[in-house]
Simulated scan of single mutants.
Amino acid sequence: MSTAAQNRQLTPADIRARKGGPPIVCLTAYTTPVAKLADPACDLVLVGDSVGMVLHGLPSTLGVTMEMMILHGQAVARGLRRALMVVDMPFGSYEESPEQALRNAARLMRETGAAAVKLEGGGAMAETIRFLTRRSIPVLAHVGLTPQAIHTLGGYKVQGRGADRARVLADARAVAEAGAFGAVLEKVPAALADEITGEIDIPTIGIGASAGCDGQILVVDDMLGLFAEFRPKFVKRYAHLAEDAERAIATYAAEVRARTFPAQEHIFADEAGV
């Protein structure tokens, strides 16, 4: 592969072509600095509506607006050179009709530079996914636990156990047949996730699913230990930055109160160069 090909930004078609190949590495990002950190290692960066809970203190993703997604999408775009950027469609921006979804998806892509959008839902959203993909809007689907539907699902529960298995499998089949270039599987039993991965012809991206999925995604603040309000079972903490930050802030406060900061090396003299 040429250097130019290696350095170009990935596309939905590139991710689609990774089915059954090397695992696809995905993370969320909401800011330019985090996007710059994620870009060299990740294949796909999602501007997730989880931003509402992680950065804005909302109790769920339901309060996230188009304006919030556009603002954070623009910030993330400034930090990416290689990874594919996908932006979440917020609650209420696509469910009414395929036409509504097209208007809002086009706006997200136009105003952020995203190459694709993500929306939640399986069979019920198949018509919308088909409508969008036939009109040059690449769609990443999301089945299993869909956080925008927590009130109908009864909370953040594992989906696809027992009699519910057939529903989740049917949802995955439906979004693949409708033209999605990939499907996020959230909080789905590992055996079911493996069955879906083996059956559908688009990549599966697991989050609380199976190591056998075609890729994995985590909320970046979860895996860095920055968001400490709660910790889902599927999250592995690769760092503990909230604890580090808490200690650093406490040390800073103590030094300010003791007048040991700023020290001589942090202040300016009357004469230049001193």
Rank of each mutant, 00 (worst) to 15 (best):
R173I: 14
E243M: 11
V47F: 02
I150T: 05
V168R: 09
C42T: 07
P189R: 11
V25C: 12
S97F: 05
E120S: 12
A193I: 07
D221Y: 10
N7V: 01
A38D: 01
R237K: 14
M89P: 10
I15H: 05
A254H: 05
A4Q: 10
A77T: 08
Q6F: 03
V158Y: 02
A149V: 13
A126S: 12
I207L: 13
A77Y: 08
P59N: 14
E120C: 11
L37V: 11
G144W: 09
A17F: 07
P23R: 06
Q216V: 03
I137Q: 00
S210V: 15
P12A: 03
P12L: 04
G52M: 12
I137P: 00
V143F: 12
H56Q: 14
K118M: 06
I150L: 06
A114F: 10
P90W: 01
E255P: 05
F181A: 00
L84Q: 01
M85V: 05
E229P: 07
Q264F: 03
Q100V: 14
G73F: 02
T197N: 15
D164A: 13
M85P: 01
A191F: 13
E255L: 10
A5F: 10
R18Y: 08
E96G: 08
Y156F: 13
P147Y: 03
Y30G: 04
G155I: 04
A272C: 15
T133L: 08
G273M: 07
I196C: 09
P262C: 06
L153T: 09
D194Q: 15
R161F: 14
A17G: 08
A41T: 06
Y156M: 11
H56M: 14
A211H: 06
A211D: 03
L44V: 14
A228M: 12
G144C: 12
D214V: 09
A141C: 10
K233F: 07
L132Q: 00
I24H: 09
R134F: 00
I205L: 10
I200C: 08
L140A: 09
G162T: 10
E96P: 02
R259Q: 11
G273N: 08
R135T: 04
A250D: 07
R78M: 06
R78G: 06
G48R: 01
A116L: 15
C42K: 02
L132F: 00
G92C: 11
G122Q: 01
A172C: 08
A41C: 07
Q74F: 00
S97A: 07
G160D: 12
Y238D: 13
F261S: 08
G79H: 06
V168A: 11
M1D: 01
A248Y: 04
A191T: 11
F227Q: 00
M68I: 06
L58Q: 15
A35T: 12
P90I: 00
T197G: 15
C42H: 05
R237C: 12
P33Q: 11
P12M: 04
E243F: 12
N7A: 07
K36E: 14
R82A: 00
A242C: 12
C42E: 08
Q74S: 01
Q264S: 05
P22S: 05
G63Q: 14
I196S: 03
E265P: 00
V184K: 07
T28G: 01
L55F: 03
L140C: 10
A190T: 06
N7P: 00
V158A: 07
V143Q: 09
I249K: 10
S136Q: 14
I196W: 03
K157Y: 11
G122N: 03
E246S: 06
L140D: 02
